[in-house]
Amino acid sequence: MLNFLGKRAVASGISFVGLVLLVFFLSRLTGDPTSLYLPLDASDEIKNQFREIHGLNDPLVVQFFNYMGDLIRFDFGDSIRRSEPAIDIVLRGFGWTLQLAAITLSLVIFFSIVLGSLAAFHVGGAFDRIATFFSLVGASAPDFWVAIVAIVVFSVTLGWVPTSGTGSFAHWILPVAVLFIRPFGLIVQIVRGSMITALSSAYVKTARAKGIKNRSIIFVHALRNALLPVITVIGDQAAALLNGAVVIETIFGFPGVGKLMIDSILQRDFAVVMAAIVVTALAIFLMNLVIDILYSILDPRIRY
């Protein structure tokens, strides 16, 4: 197990350096921040001074190694726009995204597993048809459109919930509900398919011959076997949410890391872009590790 963790850490470290390298140079391609932050008629002298302060005068390669050197000391640099440490800004945004992802994902996991399992128990039955219909609709609904329609209906027309921003319980309802739809639809389908296989397996026949109650057959015997592919997809969806649900955060004015990333790219606020990417990459690495550990907990045949 420790051996496995070590190997994973090394592999992730390598891809991490590759990622930082790529993002560092790609973000520089967007142009020079000087032209964005200084007035159009600023003198060359002032521009040069600005570049000097932010270390933009050095050759790119030197800038990169300076950045990596700082990174090792956990110094992500300061935001050009807000003049405060980039990492503080990013962690603030990431906190919001993390909450949004955790709430949405918990609801998705609970409802999709229960509904998918019950649909699989009576394949072709009324419940299965209804669940399949709605999950397909959910999996194929374009979320930006749903978000805008939801604002029009529930915020503007009915006035039940605020249109955007944060501050109260009501502010969470629409973003969570809209983010819920797609992963829910997808995961219900996966759970259903995986459960149909598990329920037709030989050990379920044994359980029936033993006189086990249907509830235990579904949720004890079949479900644990059916969960491995489900967890893989949940991990995938969780990664997408951790990256910041960019579109949804933008539509609902939600101050998460996705919106922050878009804003700072547009503003050529390199330090913030880099810090945001480093933080989400680390989070996704950790989450994948948790998924691998979950595999081995769920299935005793998997040992690292």
């Binding site: 030989a202 050990y203 044994t206 644990r224 076997n225 769920l298 299935d299 005793p300």
Partner: peptide, 8 residues
């Protein structure tokens, strides 16, 4: 195949 692989 008739014993559940994930339970003792």
């Amino acid at each position: 195949s008739h014993l559940n692989p994930v339970y003792s």
